[in-house]
Simulated assay, not measured.
Amino acid sequence: MKIKTWLLASVLSLSSISAFNVAAEQTDSVNIYFARHGKTMLNTYDRVQGWADSPLTPAGIETARYLGAGLKGIPFDRYYTSDAGRQRETMQVILKEMGKSEVKVTELPDLREMLFGGFEGLPNEDMANAAAKKLGMASGAVMFQQMKEGKVGLIPMVDAISQSDDKKEAENALQVKTRMQRALNSMVQDAIKGGDKNILAVSSGLSMQMMISDLTDNPDKNKPLANAAVVKIIYENGKYKVTDIGDMSYVNKGKEVINKAQ
């Protein structure tokens, strides 16, 4: 199936936030922990990495180990990644550190990072400059400063990237949000059917931000997520509540645990 056809099907399958909410009469409660993957080779080279992929660096593996050690006390019932190698690898490192290497991990392509189209593999600076130009700004540096000051939102930036792609294949903000929320809904529905309470999912930074873009008013949703940072969402009574954004406490806790054991 061509990329554009896949993206169109993704959007048409979910036209509004109400379409993905589980029935409001439900009284089930589910905790969903989303973690960004560990640092990769392309992250290190400051290259665009969406549907393109690269392996974790030694530092990325180490941070994933810390995350696994920090999450170890949580009784997870289900585990998810996308089909991207960096997310799979991060999950396997986490599970090994938790002593759960044999558990089943479900892959959902919807959990992929944003598709950046023709920008894939190029320097991040090139993509940022192109998006800034589309927004009428002098450079990516100016755009990021405007975002830091709260003058430009994340969604306009994502849409500017999409509009700047000369290959016309980069996803826009709605497309990323749609598929990520579809994945979230699917995970919760499976958890409710199975009577499960805690879910761990590994995804990517920008796609996680798009997922929560209309689920919270917390301005932290517009801040970049560090590698292995956690976003926690609680589903209860048919609604989603984002309680933590960019949480590094699990990594810090795990680092202390591992260093003490050495």
Rank of each mutant, 00 (worst) to 15 (best):
D126W: 06
A19Y: 15
R179K: 06
I233F: 00
T106M: 09
E113P: 05
E25R: 14
G99I: 10
R179W: 03
G238A: 07
R182P: 10
T40L: 01
A128T: 06
A84F: 02
Q49V: 11
T57N: 07
I234D: 09
K221Y: 13
D83L: 08
P219T: 06
S139C: 01
S213M: 12
K148S: 09
E102K: 12
E102A: 07
D110Q: 08
S186F: 13
M137E: 15
M157Y: 13
V242F: 10
V202Y: 02
S15M: 04
S54M: 08
S203L: 03
Q87V: 03
S13P: 12
T5D: 15
K104M: 10
T57Y: 00
V48M: 13
N198K: 15
M143Q: 14
G194L: 15
N43P: 09
L71H: 04
A191D: 03
M127W: 08
E89M: 15
G153F: 05
W51I: 01
I233Q: 00
N218C: 04
R88H: 15
E169Y: 07
Q163N: 11
L154T: 01
F76L: 04
V251R: 04
I155F: 07
Q146E: 15
K100G: 00
I258M: 11
Q92T: 00
A132F: 00
T90H: 08
K2I: 07
K260M: 13
I234V: 13
E107P: 03
A35K: 04
D214E: 14
